[in-house]
Design a protein around this nucleic acid. Structure first.
Length: 272
DNA sequence: CTGTAGACCTGGAGGC
DNA sequence: TGCCTCCAGGTCTACA
């Protein structure tokens, strides 16, 4: 589920319910996520006031005054808002954060690749966040930046833009879609692409991510008491998952290849 | 440093 | 129905 737009929409969806609230209770039903949820976290969080909610890459950061919760949704995680904690948790709903406004933030994650961590220090300094590349929606990501950072990278461009240390938050769907919009083959060696084309790529990344956030954001009113899935899924992809189907531009069947153990899709005519 | 494969998990889809 | 294989929106870690 979560690529950057989904994470941003989740962040926006939970933020208004969290700001200024005190954590009344934290309940764990299964602490075995990617890393175990700290055993004493329920004690740590007791009575803490939430000051801010932010996002860095695909991490959601919750400022709890004396420290931060770091949330990652992994492959299948989602957060939703309940009006009370009375609703029975299902098999894959692993933790609840109960607030003094009566609301509960509940985490669901069937595959348990997600994470919930606690840090006392600046979360940007946390080992998982400190080496992240720039935010894709910031001006730092542009053709010049990509050209510089990819100079010595001979592996495929798609692998590079999915590398969080190069640029953070570009997942498999948006890597494929952005490369289509930029007319670049996912297999092309990263250091063999001109700065002009990399400029097109950075523009395409920003455009596709922004569009997805807009589409998802338009159904934000449904976030409350839903599972957080939004209109973003319904958008039509140009190449992702369209193996053998005609390219929307030239009708050539979309090709599928595997790069870095991930499915990659492109048009052999429109992308060079 | 660079690049690649494996690891962590569950569930859905499709073939036989 | 049941069993098997493959696939899935992520990314850290180990190793060549």
């Amino acid at each position: 589920m979560p690529e950057l737009p989904e994470v941003e929409i989740t962040k926006q969806g939970i933020e208004p319910f969290l700001l200024g609230q005190t954590i009344k209770q934290f309940t764990v039903r299964n602490r075995k996520l990617r890393w175990p949820i700290p055993v004493k976290l329920h004690q740590t969080l007791q009575n803490l006031v939430i000051q801010a909610v932010s996002r860095r890459g695909k991490y959601i950061l919750i400022d709890c005054t004396v420290g931060w919760l770091i949330i990652h949704l992994g492959m299948s995680g989602s957060l939703r808002v309940l009006t009370s904690k009375e609703e029975t948790a299902s098999k894959h709903e692993h933790y609840d954060i109960n607030l003094n406004n009566g609301m509960t933030i509940r985490y669901r994650d069937p595959r348990r690749f997600g994470a919930l961590l606690w840090t006392n220090k600046d979360p940007e300094k946390h080992r998982l966040l400190t080496n992240l590349g720039p935010e894709p929606l910031h001006d730092v990501l542009n053709g010049r930046f990509l050209y510089q950072v990819l100079r010595k990278k001979s592996s495929p461009i798609k692998i590079q833009i999915m590398n969080n240390h190069i640029v953070t938050g570009v997942g498999n769907i948006y890597a494929n879609e952005s490369l289509f919009h930029a007319g670049i083959r996912p297999t092309r060696q990263a250091n063999r692409i001109s700065q002009v084309r990399l400029e097109r790529l950075s523009d395409a990344i920003k455009k596709t991510l922004k569009r997805a956030i807009e589409v998802g954001g338009s159904s934000l009113q449904d976030f409350y008491q839903t599972d957080g899935t939004t209109g973003y899924f319904q958008q039509e992809y140009k190449v992702y998952g369209r193996t053998g189907e005609p390219c929307h531009t030239c009708k050539t069947p979309i090709k599928r290849v595997t790069l870095g153990q991930r499915s990659s899709f492109y048009c052999i005519v429109c992308q060079t």
